[in-house]
Design a protein around this nucleic acid. Sequence first.
DNA 1: AGTCAATCATTGACTAATCAATTATATGTT
DNA 2: AACATATAATTGATTAGTCAATGATTGACT
Lengths: 141, 141
Amino acid sequence: MEVSNQQFGQILFLLKSLGNQITQNFEKKTGLSLTRYEMLVLLSEHETVLQSELQQFVNIDQAAITRHLKILEQHEFVERKRNPKNNREVLVQITEKGKTMFLNCSPGKKEVTEQLYNGISSEKIITLGETLQLLYDNSKK
Amino acid sequence: MEVSNQQFGQILFLLKSLGNQITQNFEKKTGLSLTRYEMLVLLSEHETVLQSELQQFVNIDQAAITRHLKILEQHEFVERKRNPKNNREVLVQITEKGKTMFLNCSPGKKEVTEQLYNGISSEKIITLGETLQLLYDNSKK
DNA sequence: AGTCAATCATTGACTAATCAATTATATGTT
DNA sequence: AACATATAATTGATTAGTCAATGATTGACT
């Protein structure tokens, strides 16, 4: 039995819509934008991170990264300095204040995920994660 | 066996990122923004549609709908008039030019979906669609 | 009939992303 | 050493969305 194109096609917009909705919900519950949160994820896992590494990790363009970092810097969640080994590059480091903010997001994030996954089995969520990763890789080719 | 929070949490940003990526790919291949395409989907299924119905269908706010319609109107893909039965409301109707544009998007849309679903079984895609719908409903509560 | 409240659309101000152009630095070739 | 090219970050202009305030029309109550 063939699957209708219509059914397949609807997923495109559903993904867009869901992405938007999650972005809003996350920021409302945590007080931090999902993108900036994701930047803090990488920053909290490493001593220092290059701006270009951040760019790859969150998959938005360089210009947007620069602007997000400016805001994170204003809030004193990160510090930046030029790489002495290569003055074109910028090294980014999370501050104690940034780490605290990052941890304080956990309850809000949990709320968002619990609401989202409510009534859906763990197996389904795991399968979802795997499939989304495949789609994501395909979408970037 | 418990699933790690980390694994669950990563899906949030993955969804956001994937939604963004799909949005870009769609517009590049079809020449029409995914949101405006989705508006044409509803418009091509009905003789006339209320602006508020469009708003519900595409799940963005009223203000954004107004602006999208302005653009669609400039391209002469739709026409608008006040509802004579209720002058607060606006009735929207797709034009022949709009229908043509809508149909001309099909090949591009097909390209996007084929790239996206490449190497993934139909069963997985169907399961994905079902799960996404559940998540979407949860996200709106 | 006249006012008050509710509803739908619009506008303005803001945020987050894109792309294109620019600047600063580093690298490689003659 | 000098110049051309490549790379990293920044800035400016544009698009798509949000929320809050306003305007216009309708409906309901006295």
